[in-house]
Design a protein around this nucleic acid. Sequence first.
DNA 1: GTCTATAGAAAGATAGAC
DNA 2: GTCTATCTTTCTATAGAC
Lengths: 206, 206
Amino acid sequence: MSTSVDFDDNSRMTDTTPRRRDATATRRAILTSAREAFAEMGYDGAGVREIAARAGVTAMLVNRYFGSKENLFAEAVAEGMARTAVVLPKILSSGATGEEIAKTLLGITGASDTPMEGFQILLRSASSRRAAEISRELIERHQQKAIATALGGDLAAQRAALMLSLIAGVQLMRQMIALPALADSKSKSVVRTLAPLFQMLIDGNA
Amino acid sequence: MSTSVDFDDNSRMTDTTPRRRDATATRRAILTSAREAFAEMGYDGAGVREIAARAGVTAMLVNRYFGSKENLFAEAVAEGMARTAVVLPKILSSGATGEEIAKTLLGITGASDTPMEGFQILLRSASSRRAAEISRELIERHQQKAIATALGGDLAAQRAALMLSLIAGVQLMRQMIALPALADSKSKSVVRTLAPLFQMLIDGNA
DNA sequence: GTCTATAGAAAGATAGAC
DNA sequence: GTCTATCTTTCTATAGAC
């Protein structure tokens, strides 16, 4: 590298400098963009071009950094699920009541941008076989085990799985399908109906 | 029968006879094929070519009979939901217990071809905005009202909506995500945990 | 009524300049 | 490290023969 240092020193010759040249920042921007796009439009709906455009780069870089769309999706789901993962086990481990869980759930499934991004990606991407596999792995590792531990008692795994089912179902019907009875009606009356279900899953049945 | 066969009689002029020439049967075959394909692979995953091939026709006829893929999907969801619709309200209206519902649900979400095709299409197609709209309309009209009527009592609409949420969530986690705690473990222990939830939605809470 | 053939758009991924 | 330009495939939808 002695004599041919002519692209940093004397930048007169090759002065292009197309962008900011920060690999980690670019990678991070793509991943964030992908997380949002997948949550909004699902695995099939979100195109690499669009994800790249949101991140301010070209489609080529997506494949350069992540190899393929599938790999990008796996990382996006992992990050989304990691974010979501902190919410539920936390409120459970501190001995929350069914009503508190119901309130929390309804509070974070109303707006469009939510802490439930992991589940949203999952729901919007359930069509893809590969996406389902990736999701199962992540749910099992991050969500179910943490919830089952927090719940404790008999049949903790099943109760945790059913709690996840109920949460996913509510998010689906309320946020994505927008079933009026859940989306439009007063949160309070929904909480009243939903709370005892969570309470029963917390307590376990004799 | 007897003398008809005008494509056999004067077959000298137009002798092609490419297929059987039964418009309603062809249309019906396409619709059936579409219902299965959408349930299996979702709106984006199922291509018109593949749907047509399963029905034994070419892709062109799909658009001839249904105008577009979106219209075809709408009809397929409608039929799938109508089939699913008869299951739940029926067992509810006859005063079923939570345990009976739980047993029924687990019985029809294990196999691959199920009476829950309507929900399956919905879950696999939740990525599509248009699919969600179509589904909401159909769920509201066919499922929720029937269930709410069968349930009766206070907050019947919310209770029905939550029952649908729970059903959809269980189907999602058990059949599509294949969460081991729900998919692999003995049905009996899952029923034991699930039954009181349904019972509570049936009774309504004081 | 059904076919073959193809138009036209959009997808994911790659090559090579700078 | 990032770009432009392009390859290849796949999709929905249409045109026209029979």
